[in-house]
């Protein structure tokens, strides 16, 4: 344990994702030794990001204004919503230029270990968006891990009575890869999700 303020800093840093007690200590002492103007700049950047960056009123994506760029874009298809866990997933999907609908960012996945339940995610907001009946398809693009799958199942069950089409992104083989290099789980999933070859 260090004296008051130093320990406070270490504790705060240690709460960041991917930062353990050792790294927190390292960063803290780096900051102590750093030039005061550098530290001020960092502090300013931290405050600014909290003050200026907002979350889109509609989809929950990071935005500079009330609504994000995608939700303001009138050319986008209003009938399809793609549900993702984080804002960074929106960026990943946007890169494909395949999807022309809009997004809904949940802000995580259901994970009881981390104390995250449906109420901690933006699910109520999603239900409100779906309520007006304009949306015809919901694409669930949560991560293909256990928590992502659980979230997908939960959403699918919740939305089912509304009678709209619910789809899940396919899991399977990477494009351009060799079959022999796929791991067993991926290959197994690809088998499960095989589809009829229509010629």
């Amino acid at each position: 344990m260090y004296e008051g303020v130093v320990q406070n800093l270490i504790d705060e840093l240690g709460m960041l994702p991917g930062v353990g007690p050792k790294s927190a200590q390292r960063i803290a002492f780096h900051l102590l030794a750093a030039d005061p103007t550098d530290v001020k700049r960092l502090a300013h950047a931290l405050l600014e990001v909290k003050e200026k960056v907002r979350f889109c009123r509609i989809c929950g994506n990071v935005a500079a204004e009330e609504e994000c760029r995608i939700c303001r874009d009138t050319r986008r298809d209003l009938h399809v919503i793609c549900v993702v866990e984080e804002s960074k997933d929106v960026v990943a999907i946007e890169k494909t230029r395949e999807f022309r609908g809009r997004y809904h960012v949940l802000g995580g996945a259901i994970s009881p270990i981390d104390g995250v339940g449906p109420d901690d995610l933006r699910i109520r907001e999603l239900m409100t968006r779906l309520a007006d009946g304009r949306v015809t398809e919901l694409i669930i693009a949560t991560d293909p891990n256990l928590e992502g799958e659980a979230t997908a199942t939960y959403l699918a069950r919740l939305v089912k009575p509304m009678g709209l089409k619910v789809t899940r992104l396919a899991s399977g083989l990477p494009v351009g890869g060799d079959l022999e290099y796929a791991d067993e789980v991926t290959l197994g999933r690809a088998f499960e999700g095989r589809r009829l070859l229509d010629v």
Binding site: I110, P112, G117, P118, D119, L146, E149, A150, T153, Y154, R157
Partner: peptide, 12 residues
């Protein structure tokens, strides 16, 4: 809330 998510975990 717990009950509704429990069913999801049951399924998995």
């Amino acid at each position: 809330d717990v009950l509704s998510t429990l069913e999801v975990w049951d399924a998995h």
